[in-house]
């Protein structure tokens, strides 16, 4: 029973990381139909940013790394959107392959710059160890990651609901043509979405340095699961992404605990397929009229 409860913070932090990664994906996918396989490399960029800052700043570099990684990954995303993806709107499958090509190049670039072996980021002292709450062991780093993700979701939620940019973004997600007709500069909205989504991936990368080493393949490890979150959650929906990330995070965590890591992945896949039999549009669906 105690072991079961101890699995809780682990499941929660897996969910938190998945969510940070999936947020950007679900909006770029939902809004622009772009399946960005290079998203994983923005995670890697964020993680390496934390690694570099550790050398430069030392001590409390983690707190500096969060905004810097957001900016670096975000700008990289912006660059990708502006230079390549822009030409591919309306061709989702082609963007998938295109961005995979970009991701290969970025990975090799990281290998050439930082070397193939993994590097380590040392967590600040206040994130080492944990506390016991009602007999459940809560490691500080896991709690921090969960809180970070919660904060980001809150931020994105407020952005979508309150800020004019966020409202424009929701409008474009729901109906691009109509939004364009109502005078929204959809190109600009697309770029800000890309900036935001890629930036969050960078933040996820910083978070990941707290639970494991950093290597050129860091992104590939998470991207598939993050895409499953997008599929299960429903396109471009914040609520869907949160629900799906929680479901998949816990499912992953507990299945690994009950069976083992190798079977868990297969079972999660089966679970997603089974879920799609009940709700093919994902947990939270956008409705529209098909065929006219």
């Amino acid at each position: 029973m105690a072991a079961l409860a101890n699995q809780l913070p682990i499941g929660l932090s897996i969910a938190a990381v998945l969510l940070l990664i999936a947020l950007g994906l679900t909006f770029t996918f939902g809004q622009m139909g772009v399946v960005n396989m290079a998203h994983g490399e923005f995670i890697m960029v964020g993680a390496y940013t934390a690694y570099l800052l550790q050398g430069a700043v030392g001590g409390q570099s983690l707190l500096v790394a969060l905004p810097v990684a957001f900016a670096v990954a975000g700008l990289l995303g912006l660059l990708l959107e502006w230079s390549l993806i822009r030409r591919f709107y309306g061709r989702p499958l082609d963007t998938l392959l295109l961005t995979w090509g970009v991701s290969l190049v970025l990975q090799q670039l990281a290998r050439d710059v930082f070397g193939a072996p993994n590097v380590q980021v040392t967590a600040p002292a206040w994130l080492v160890g944990g506390v016991d709450v009602l007999g459940v062991r809560l490691p500080h780093n896991r709690v921090f990651i969960t809180a970070l993700a919660a904060l980001c979701v809150l931020g994105v939620g407020l952005y979508l609901a309150k800020l004019p940019q966020g409202r424009r973004m929701r409008a474009v997600v729901q109906n691009r043509e109509l939004a364009a007709c109502s005078g929204i500069a959809t190109g600009r909205v697309d770029r800000s979405t890309f900036l935001l989504g890629s930036g969050l991936a960078g933040v996820a990368g910083v978070a990941l340095t707290l639970v494991g080493p950093v290597g050129p393949g860091l992104g590939t490890f998470y991207i598939v699961d993050a895409f499953l979150v997008v599929v299960a959650g429903g396109l471009g929906r914040l609520r869907g992404a949160v629900l799906a990330a929680l479901a998949l995070g816990f499912l992953n965590g507990y299945l690994e605990f009950w069976t083992d890591a190798s079977l868990a992945k297969v079972l999660v896949f089966v679970a997603v397929i089974a879920f799609l039999q009940i709700r093919p549009q994902g947990m939270v669906a956008l409705r529209g009229r098909s065929l006219g």
Partner: peptide, 9 residues
């Protein structure tokens, strides 16, 4: 890897 990625693009 550069070539392969570049080819796709």
């Amino acid at each position: 890897l550069y070539l392969q990625g570049g080819l796709f693009v």
